[in-house]
Design a protein around this nucleic acid. Structure first.
Lengths: 341, 341
DNA sequence: TCCCGTACTGTTATCGATAACAGTAGTTGG
DNA sequence: CCAACTACTGTTATCGATAACAGTACGGGA
């Protein structure tokens, strides 16, 4: 039995690095985590031994003793397949990796219950921080994150009472601003197509923003001009077809999501409906494709990548020992005016 | 000092659960992992105590003692923002979550060196499995995964000598099949637009497939008919413009990526070029939008979600104790013929 | 010369769960 | 009636890194 001591894994332990470098394990630990605390000679020998053995530290052991430094963060998005969340994740991982922190990822499928069970599963790995895109949670979630004692960043909406930290934009203000813009362009009969409000706080807020703008402009709210539908190209197409059938004519449609707006634009192209002459189309979230149509789509730019970056930054400030409530960050939004309105 | 013992974290330990349930910690451990090994009475009391304390197990401790059961897997994709990889990830997480395994995620940015350092960082958390989309690796990667002694699944291409497990489709065969299809449709001057071959094995294989098909059909390979460019709508647009300038006329263009094909289609719409009359367009990877154009795009369907699912399944078989080489899985592909060709 | 601070290194106990082992009842079969 | 066996439970040592503490050596100032 040549490999009696380690039958399966061949990974070197810190002790073996220490042996080879002719120092104690503690010096190896220090050399790796705070190189300025050891002599240059020790550092050199440790680095050499690490290289030669291909040593990969064991963060399970480290995190067990020093729970605040597992070098692991967790994030939950509503869906992995939505490129908007992907941009935020990219910002997150890029910023965290600079500090040697890796990311654990899950999707809630837009369900609060799934979010709770996922958080519980994640916390079992003792991450040193948690990022949640959703801002509406079960009571269990509040208890879990309170007990975990780690920084939590929410990113989906600028809410009033965040769990802890908050980096986002206001869905309400954004939708209101876009509707205001359409009103300013002299459209009067403005329809709204968004995701199902009862399932999603962001969808709710956007719809609220739309209504607030109409009311402020003294325009009537018409039941038939609001459509709720899951986001997809197909549903955007269906919505525009439905709205084109309404009389008196709808002048502009605000799609609270670019998938929907793009689906609608493709349908208009197919049917030969002229945009914006017959109907104006506005989107939400500047997908690259929106600007590449023959009639590019007016839309809202949300700095999704930046949300991830700043969420990471906020989390790191806490990990660096900053106590107390850090104020929410509003990353804002920007209307991008194009030919479709 | 009321919280002398646990200053920051409020998380209950297994010992406390044991105390409350009036059993030993070992019984708690057993009740949670293999409920059939304890009496129903013990099980009941443990579950009650767990619920009341909101106990979240510490997988760092568990994984330290039993390294093969960290309940953590790691995956690396070339880019988080590409919806193709997202579909595979979704398949992965869905399948792994059923077994209580969570996923750690990173992106290599299409760089082999980045992949290596990411793998090293991930292995520090002692995942029980690793999924890599890339199939071309640095020597360091080979050493790392060998030493880690965990199952590794590659998913990006059907290669000959995989590191370990393999679930994919053949980029070569797919590109060849699509080119064969175009030849079968009587197109003779067929151009190819793909990602930069020197940077990416998949791009290389697709280009090779294209060439093999032309050669087999007795058609000449023309330098001017192959364009290499990073994937984006804009580059697809540029490519089609460039190719439309070539004389004698290009009859069909095979875009080895739907982003490129869609960018080209949008450009054709904008310029009023008729597809497929003036030029036929074929894509690769069935993006939903491809089927929604006025002239829907012929493309290749790759079962991306299934790749993730089956990668998870393969990994789990290893974790369930299955030794030896498991054969590679070819998930295949399917040509979807639409109006653009 | 002695004291103390600085810079570095080593030793010990510990984080929390679990494998390995060691019981203890109760039961079955010869 | 007792050995052997099943079903369950508890005890101890351990996984690998690190915090806390305890040196050691050297140098500068009084």
């Amino acid at each position: 039995m040549p490999n009696k001591k380690r039958p399966a894994a061949l990974q070197a332990r810190m002790k073996e690095v220490a042996l080879r470098a002719k120092v104690s394990a503690m010096s190896v630990s220090r050399a790796l985590r705070s190189p300025d605390q050891v002599s240059s000679e020790t550092l050199r020998r440790v680095q050499k031994a690490v290289r030669e053995l291909g040593y990969v530290p064991n963060r399970l052991a480290g995190g067990l003793k020093a729970p605040s430094r597992t070098q692991l963060a967790a994030a939950i998005v509503p869906s992995l397949q939505n490129s908007l969340f992907a941009a935020t994740l990219q910002g997150l991982t890029d910023a965290l990796r600079k500090r040697g922190i890796n990311l654990m990822l899950g999707d809630s499928g837009y369900s609060r219950e799934a979010e709770e069970s996922l958080i519980a599963a994640f916390l079992a790995h003792r991450p040193c921080g948690l990022v949640l895109h959703d801002t509406s949670h079960t009571p269990g979630v509040r208890r879990l994150v309170r007990n975990a004692g780690i920084p939590v960043v929410e990113t989906g909406n600028l809410v009033n009472r965040p769990l802890d930290l908050l980096v986002s934009y206001s869905n309400f203000a954004a939708a209101r601003a876009m509707t205001d813009y359409l009103v300013g362009r002299s459209y009067r009969r403005i329809a709204f197509v968004g995701q199902i409000a009862s399932l999603n706080e962001r969808a709710r807020e956007r719809q609220r923003g739309y209504r607030a703008a109409l009311t402020a402009a003294g325009l009537p709210l018409e039941e038939a001009l609001t459509i709720e539908t899951p986001g997809s190209f197909e549903n955007g197409a269906k919505a525009i077809v439905q709205l084109m059938g309404v009389r008196p004519k709808v002048e502009a449609v605000f799609f609270a999501g670019d998938v929907l707006a793009i689906g609608a634009m493709l349908e208009c192209n197919r049917r030969g409906w002229e945009v914006p002459k017959q109907v104006a189309i506005a989107g939400f979230d500047d997908w690259e494709i929106s600007r590449r149509f023959a009639i590019p789509i007016t839309t809202l730019d949300i700095p999704r990548y930046q949300i991830g970056e700043r969420a990471a930054a906020l989390m790191l400030r806490r990990l660096d020992g900053e106590r107390g409530k850090l104020p929410p960050i509003d990353v804002g939004f920007r209307i991008i005016e194009r030919a479709s309105t």
